[in-house]
Design a protein around this nucleic acid. Structure first.
Lengths: 334, 334
DNA sequence: CTAGAGAACTGGAACGTTCCAAAACGAGAT
DNA sequence: ATCTCGTTTTGGAACGTTCCAGTTCTCTAG
């Protein structure tokens, strides 16, 4: 910067002013400086600026499973608005590992991030997040709320979505309906499973705990769950899955046994990732406007960065989209 | 840091030594310092350290389409090895927009990244990348090579994969085979389309340029392409797609017309994303070990960061995985 | 008891910015 | 000419580290 000051015949302070687009500098001077910048191939050091200015344009994005298309879509939405606002995100994929999550959180705070969006890994203690908040970093929780102090959050309406999906299965005549995936110590699972149970109870059906199969929200879990359940004395005829990826696993498990969803078993997912419409058969699922949810989360941290500290718990509307995996299209079940 | 020095009764230099894990400090002193750090809730400022130390633990990861599960899987692989090596990645999703890409590249260089992995957006000029390299940032190109100076790169064996896939289609008896997706100004498309053409030529079939439908590598393109091609006087009976996502679009397009892949049209994808096995029908595609490719890319930049500047062009092996969309399983086509 | 050699520490400059207080400039009014 | 006031410009301290060149310990050997 001193070099370019010399080259333009001004002081480094003036260069700084130009760089910040200050209106205090005369147009003519500005041009000289810009020319010098151009000529010398100067590149701004934002790290140094952060250090002195005590502010940063880095934000953190910590995702628990980036290989799940749902979270990838969420990340895309988040990145879109951050980029537009001049912020640049760190990314970390915690793969549901609180230890790994702790490491990245520490690393991000060492870099003095201006804000943080986090889908907490399973087993995250509120204190892990609290540490960040205490440092003055605006935090918004995505997809998974946390017990304890009020944080900003964005979530789909898990309870309502699961309830509608279950009602649909009930309307198709199913009485023994299972719930696959997620763990009861995850709030999202509580909400989705809660919606499922509420619908059962409202229909006068007792909840059978044997039919709630917990597991990680991935393909493998779905595949195991369907196998397990089909070996029961009185197997269920339908299942709601914690998310689409679990449902994809169920599809594989069914196929391995020569069975097909929609014909031999009614299957419903949750999230409506882009691939859900192409599965075999196409997956009935609860539609979530994932990209918009991500954008909303980013806007929340932006708002908080700009000084509005009020937490906001945003719950987005959801819709059941009926395709073939539930058997409704073919009408062949019951 | 001065605070903690005071609290531990040492100088800030000693604190710095402790923080860096230097062996020069006596165990006893170290303990006092660590205790002070603990007590005061101090958090290290890596930005300041970078400034003084002229090195950084931030790397850049610029992806052209993060919503494509293929690139998400790639990103996961990259992030995995960077995290393990103590680096933390910026992420940017360029959505094939060179202007956006230019912006993020500039932003990343302002943050003095230690290395860069980039899947260049379509229309990237070599000079855009050269700017980074000139700044001394180790660059590795992922999935898409670039004309001009030798950069490190990781790519699947596009030519061979496409050739094998096309040969498979030929073996099933198809003579009019289309190629969907990608643009001829993308090297990856050249390679894949080149493999396709090579197979045709080897089989004594003239390449019909009408059957090569260019377009963005996304679902929409596939949907449009199949519609377009089915309206021809003599439509093709099979197609190889630039990637799986394009093939997913074709699946939708086929479905819209009441047709099914594997029965009415032979379809092959490229990449073998996780969802390909669950599509309706399951997609025959060229398997790429995506996560490993990402890891390889990250290892390359790590190697270059550590001073080994030799560029390495890594081409990973691929495999055709035959499922139902090509009609091989049912044998119903021809 | 002291010289010498390590081992363990330390002060201050430097990294590239921003910010503040103050200085220099320019133009109109006296 | 001089004063005043608004517009531009500027020097230097500060941000939180690292690194270098010493300095001060501590111990061993003579």
């Amino acid at each position: 910067m001193i070099d370019i000051a010399r080259h333009a015949g001004v002081s480094k302070s003036t260069v700084s002013l130009v760089l910040q687009g200050s209106p205090l500098v005369k147009a003519e001077t500005r041009e000289k400086v810009v020319a010098a910048i151009e000529a010398l191939g100067y590149v701004y050091n934002r790290g140094a600026a952060n250090l002195r200015g005590q502010r940063s344009n880095i934000v953190g994005m910590v995702i628990n499973d980036l290989a799940n298309p749902f979270f990838a879509e969420l990340a895309v939405g988040i990145e879109r608005v951050f980029h537009a606002a001049g912020y640049i995100p760190f990314i970390a994929n915690t793969i549901e590992n609180p230890k790994r999550q702790g490491e990245v959180l520490r690393s991000m705070s060492e870099h003095d991030i201006a804000g943080l969006i986090i889908c907490p890994a399973r087993g995250t203690r509120p204190s892990d997040i609290e540490t960040m908040a205490q440092l003055g970093v605006p935090v918004v929780l995505a997809m998974r709320r946390l017990a304890g102090p009020r944080y900003s959050s964005v979530t789909p309406d898990n309870l309502r979505g699961a309830r509608r999906a279950t009602e649909h299965l009930l309307a198709l005549g199913h009485r023994r309906i299972a719930f696959f995936g997620g763990y009861s110590d995850m709030i999202a699972q509580n909400d989705r499973c809660g919606g499922y149970q509420a619908a059962l109870v409202a229909a006068g059906i007792a909840v059978d705990p044997m039919l709630v199969i917990e597991g990680p929200p991935n393909r493998e879990c779905g595949q195991n769950a369907i196998g397990h359940v089909l070996d029961m004395a009185v197997p269920p005829t339908a299942a709601l899955c914690f998310n689409d990826v679990v449902a994809f696993g169920v599809l594989t498990g069914l196929e391995r046994r020569g069975l097909a969803a929609g014909r031999d078993f009614a299957l419903v997912g949750f999230d409506d990732v882009a691939e859900a419409r192409h599965t075999n058969p196409p997956l009935t699922t609860v539609h979530v406007d994932t990209g918009a949810l991500g954008e909303r989360a980013a806007h929340q941290v932006l708002r908080m960065i700009h000084g509005d500290a009020r937490p906001e718990e945003f719950v987005s509307d959801v819709d059941l989209v009926v395709r073939a995996s539930c058997g409704a299209a073919t009408g062949r079940l019951q």
